[in-house]
């Protein structure tokens, strides 16, 4: 395995990890499979593109075209992606959680509702922006940097570092803060949470917004290499879902581990000449299916078991 493959794998792992973690957190705390995660992805991409169109001339007039300008541009992109993702997460909360969370069969229902949101969003994006692909401004520039004797693209470093930092923050936040405790409490026992003064209805809002923001960030980072299009969310959604599945739905370490495995698998299979890019998806799914048949709860899926044991 060459160093380039390693970096490429890490880069992919970072983006998939962002998607998978969002799906996993939402499932573990709210009990909802978010099929609109891909829609969040696409919508945030478009929001960032729209913002970049408006902000580009402003930034150019204020900061010129130097390093300052590209830094400010990068910050604007990331911020707009995060905000758009969070807002979209809020929308998902309003439509797919609030009206049905007290009704029977919530897991399947919310899955259907989020599917409908996904369908509608893709069509709306097609309707307003057309099927043309758009390119986001490169926030990390085009350059390459030498790290330990390896020449690496700037956007790859940026993606890996940004994701690692963000994931660390999220994990610490979930472990240490009052909100994190609130989310854990709700996930383990909704009635107990309510008796501790936690509002089950309103705890879900920050969770959906957080996962939406993660998808928004993933959109900005992935759009450094891939264009933004209305259907851009489908593949990240499916990959995120399957990785979350591989990690064991609801398990954060599992999701991160799954993302790293799948990212490296993609990088390695892609770099082997006689297999090539076309067998990437194939190998990934075969790997996931094999793992799931051996371990039906995924790599780290202990959560469901604790839930079940409580219900007995």
């Amino acid at each position: 395995m060459t160093a380039v493959t390693l970096i490429h794998g890490l880069n992919l792992a970072a983006i998939y990890g962002l998607m998978a973690i969002g799906i996993s957190i939402l499932w573990s705390s709210v009990g909802m499979i978010n099929m609109a995660h891909g829609a969040t992805f696409a919508a945030s991409g478009y929001a960032a593109w729209q913002v970049s169109l408006i902000a580009q001339p402003l930034i150019n007039t204020w900061f010129g075209t130097g390093l300052d300008a590209s830094l400010v541009m990068g910050a604007t992109m990331v911020a707009s992606g995060l905000v758009a993702g969070a807002l979209f997460g809020g929308l998902i909360f309003m439509l797919a959680y609030l009206p049905i969370h007290e009704k029977a069969n919530f897991a399947v229902r919310s899955l259907i509702v989020t599917l409908a949101i996904n369908l509608a969003t893709v069509q709306l994006l097609l309707f307003f922006f057309g099927p043309r692909q758009r390119a986001l401004p490169k926030i990390f520039g085009f350059g390459r940097t030498e790290i330990l004797g390896i020449s690496v693209r700037n956007d790859q470093i940026g993606t890996i570092v940004a994701t690692a930092i963000l994931m660390l923050v999220v994990v610490i936040w979930l472990k240490r803060s009052r909100k994190g405790l609130e989310i854990t409490a709700m996930m383990q026992n909704p009635e107990g949470a309510v008796l501790s003064g936690i509002s089950v209805r309103w705890t879900a809002l920050p969770v959906t917004m957080l996962t939406g923001a993660l998808a928004g960030l993933a959109a900005i980072l992935l759009s450094q290499t891939v264009f933004v299009s209305p259907t851009a969310g489908a593949l990240p959604l499916i990959k995120g879902l399957t990785i979350a599945l591989l990690g064991g739905l609801g398990s954060l370490p599992g999701a991160i581990m799954g993302a790293i495995l799948i990212g490296f698998l993609e990088a390695i299979v892609g770099s082997i000449s006689f297999l090539g890019q076309r067998y990437v998806l194939f190998s990934q799914f075969l790997f996931i299916i094999t793992v799931l048949i051996i371990r039906p709860r995924g790599l780290g899926g202990l959560l469901d078991e604790t839930r079940e044991s409580r219900n007995v």
Partner: peptide, 13 residues
């Protein structure tokens, strides 16, 4: 081997 939702997502893949 798999639970309902797990299987659903797998078939999607």
């Amino acid at each position: 081997r798999l639970d309902g939702l797990y299987f659903a997502l797998l078939t999607l893949g």
